[in-house]
Simulated assay, not measured.
Amino acid sequence: MTASPADQMTVRDIERDDLDALIDINQDALEGVGPLDHDSLNHLVEEADSALVLEDDGDIAGFVITLPTGADYDSSRYDWFESRLKDYVYLDRIVVAQTHRRQGVASRLYEEIEGDKPVALEVYDHNDGSLAFHEGRGFEPVGELEHDGTTNIMFVRPPN
């Protein structure tokens, strides 16, 4: 089966029936994101200002979750931005299914969340592909944070 170009895929809100698939996709991408279980994913979706999937012919190609300022979220990375920025969107995670990587899925999901507020996120310092991707999208490094023995590069992308 040939995958569809990302511009022909459908973006929609995360639904309860998606949760098992999202956890599986997330756990296959732990080199770039933290782990998720049902409780943590439910909490993220409840707190989110954007919780979206990109669907390709019934399959989930990827998903994105962003949080607003003032969210109830226990994360040192989120707290780092909360103490430095006033009005922004925190990109908690964007994850692409292994079967859909290098097909424009991440770019399409970013288009959905980039708008009139700065977007803040962190990237593990050893994730060269993600570092290059974000710099190419106009994200600028604004600091570093040590977390669980890993250095996180903190990025902000100015609003459109």
Rank of each mutant, 00 (worst) to 15 (best):
D59K: 05
Y110R: 05
P118Q: 05
G58H: 06
V96C: 06
I153N: 00
E47R: 13
V142W: 00
L36P: 05
D56L: 06
E112W: 03
D20V: 05
E111R: 08
D28H: 11
D13V: 12
D37G: 12
D24N: 14
G149F: 11
T151L: 11
D17C: 08
D74Q: 05
D39N: 11
R84Y: 08
L121A: 06
A97E: 00
L85N: 03
S83A: 15
E82A: 15
I25P: 02
R137C: 06
T2Q: 13
A61P: 06
E146P: 07
D39R: 13
A71N: 11
D49E: 15
D17L: 09
V123Q: 10
G129F: 02
F133M: 08
P35T: 12
G70E: 13
L30N: 11
D92C: 11
A48N: 07
G70F: 13
V119Y: 02
D72H: 10
Y90I: 03
E140P: 08
G143N: 12
N152K: 13
G115A: 14
D148K: 13
A3F: 08
Y124P: 00
V142Y: 00
L109R: 02
V53C: 09
L131H: 06
R137L: 15
E31P: 09
E46N: 10
P158M: 07
I113Q: 02
V33E: 00
H43R: 13
G136Y: 05
D24R: 15
N26Y: 01
N160E: 10
P68I: 07
R108L: 01
I113C: 01
I65H: 00
T151I: 10
P158L: 12
E82F: 04
Q8R: 14
A97I: 02
F81K: 01
K86M: 14
D57K: 12
F81P: 01
R137K: 15
D39L: 13
L109A: 01
D24L: 15
V156T: 07
E46R: 12
D72E: 14
T150M: 12
L36E: 01
A6D: 02
